[in-house]
Amino acid sequence: MGLSRLPLVWRIFAINAALLLAATLLLLLARDRLHASLAYVEGLDVAIALAVMLVANFLLLRQTLRPVERLAERMHTVDLLRPGQRLAEGGGGMEVAELVRVFNQMLDRLEVERRESGRRVLRAQEAERARIAGHLHDEVGQVLTGVLLQLEGEARSEETKAAVRQALDEVRRIAQELRPEMLDDLGLVSALTELSRKFANQSGLRIERRFADDLPPLSEDAELAVYRVAQESLTNAARHAAATRVELALEPGPGSVVLRVVDDGRGMDEAAALNGHGGLRGMRERAVLVGGALAVKRAREGGLEVRLEVPAASP
């Protein structure tokens, strides 16, 4: 049985014992050959032997336990929003290899569970948004429309009518933001066109659209992810980046669709973009859940670029 198949504690013990034994034997052999007047040399011999023993012991133990250190490092840095981080299973002893294998399996399970639970949460969130949007549109909107009709005959109610119309528009806008019905009815390109048109009217941003004609089809979840990331990016450009112009593009990728939102604002620290806070983290989560990749980075001409690539629906 090889040394690497022994339990860790026995392996360390065996290494240390072998070194001690070798050092003692060397010392005994050296004593027989030395003259009494050179006794001080024995002390030097012992010191050198001890130093050699310690160095060798340290090197061997470090090599043996290095995979455990790598495992600890990976445990500190692993991020389930960036799946696929695994440790190489070779090296170290039997227990260490087993530990790494079990750790990798645990990451497999965690990533699957995280993806499933995230998907369930997002679906529940979208369902709730759709329910609230329905109530706003069907109930609050109807009530306001009724009030508006009742006011039609009143001669002195122009200000009230204007206020009710404004409230009605606001209710419709909120309902539209909560649930983009156009996405279900007319598809992603129409929904993004409508979103950008309304956003430009409200915010004053100049939005340039570049949508390719030959986009491959996407799953419903992927379309929703693209729509929500575009929505969040436009909101960030208007609210936080002080941008005046935004380019919104949809391009075909290799078996995928790429969304690009590029603004001319003040940009952001790339380290902060890598860590991802708030809205960025939400966008990253949506990307991961549909098997996509999200990059937030400095645009070539300044400003910020958000790039989302999502896989096309399987035929």
């Binding site: 840095t77 960036r82 799946p83 696929g84 981080q85 990728g253 995928s256 790339e270 380290a271 890598l274 996509g292 990749a293 999200l294 990059a295 937030v296 980075k297 400095r298 070539r300 790039r307 690539e309």
Partner: peptide, 20 residues
């Protein structure tokens, strides 16, 4: 071009994941 912060390998891995 991308600037990244953090450990060399981890930062490269992050950018690779983000850029697909």
């Amino acid at each position: 071009t991308r600037l990244a912060a953090g450990g060399h390998a981890d930062a490269l891995a992050r950018v690779a994941a983000e850029e697909g």
